[in-house]
């Protein structure tokens, strides 16, 4: 568990501390790919401020620039216009945030354990602490006992969980997840959603999570942002007033508020895509 438990950002706080660890600020950001006549505007202009501890879910039609937005926050791209700030500074890969990509992107020449250990080494964890931290990370994603497996021998869901464990190793105060569960079956997906919800809540991290599913968005998010179709801009910015503490997942999913919010998001996504 993170030594620096960040308290959940109180939605009521008037002033958002934009230099707090894990906070994200996107200021008038536009991003274009290519140059000259081949230019293509992928996102923007977008203004977003994500206080530390928030679980922000990005939803929008395919190609509206969700991944691009995450890549900007991770520091893999620099905005064509505007500025991105993570924890008050310009983001750089490996410093700004832990990233879970759409595909697991595990290193096939390493075992499950080797993948985690590499992340621990890059995070600057001393070697003596690896076994303990590794066990902790694997337990957190429910993968005890798979340490010695080759990463191509385990199932797709297990691979994605290794990727999540790996992204958690550095204990970045910010976690970026790009449709991490898109390719999974419903059962595994729900389990992992609960995992992610629990992990971020317990460690108080900020999360930006991309999905196509309104259901997933409402279940995970403390706030949902719906993007318009390409180039993506903010179409709807919706706080989710559902309880964030330990709640029964089944009960939450079955509640009337949940159904209403899901319908609202679903409707907004369709409207934004049609506009």
């Amino acid at each position: 568990m993170s030594s620096s438990e960040v308290t959940e950002a109180a939605g009521a706080t008037a002033e958002v501390d934009t230099s707090a660890a894990g906070s994200v600020r996107i200021e008038h950001v536009t991003h274009r790919y290519g140059r000259g006549g081949e230019e293509f505007t992928a996102v923007g202009p977008v203004d977003l401020s994500v206080p530390a501890g928030e679980f922000l879910v990005l939803v929008g039609a395919s190609g509206c620039g969700k991944s691009t937005l995450l890549r900007l926050i991770a520091g893999f791209e620099r905005p064509t216009r505007g500025a991105v700030r993570v924890s008050g500074a310009e983001p750089r890969p490996g410093e700004a945030a832990g990233v879970v990509f759409q595909t697991p992107r595990l290193f096939p020449w390493r075992t499950v354990r080797g993948n985690i250990d590499l992340a621990l080494r890059y995070a600057g964890v001393s070697r003596a602490q690896w076994p303990g931290r590794r066990a902790q990370l694997l337990a957190r994603v429910g993968l005890e006992g798979t340490e010695r497996r080759r990463v191509w021998e385990i199932s797709g869901g297990q691979q994605q969980r290794v990727a999540i464990a790996r992204a958690l190793a550095a204990e970045n105060p910010l976690l970026l997840l790009d449709e991490p569960f898109a390719a999974l079956d419903a059962l595994t997906r729900e389990r992992l959603q609960e995992d992610v919800r629990r992990v971020t809540r317990r460690t108080g991290r900020t999360a930006v999570f991309v999905t196509h599913s309104a259901d997933e968005a409402v279940f995970l998010g403390s706030r949902i942002v719906v993007l318009t179709k390409s180039p993506g801009t903010v179409a709807l910015d919706l706080p989710i007033p559902l309880p964030r503490d330990d709640v029964d997942a089944e009960e939450l999913r079955g509640s009337r508020e949940f159904a209403e919010l899901r319908a609202q998001v679903s409707h907004a996504v369709k409207a934004a895509a049609a506009a």
Partner: peptide, 27 residues
Amino acid sequence: KSLVEAARALGASRWDTVRDVVVPSAL
């Protein structure tokens, strides 16, 4: 490129990336 990015996202330096991604993937 996806694996190089994954390593960089985990905090790998340029040299780390060569040793831990480029070399084994070219092996």
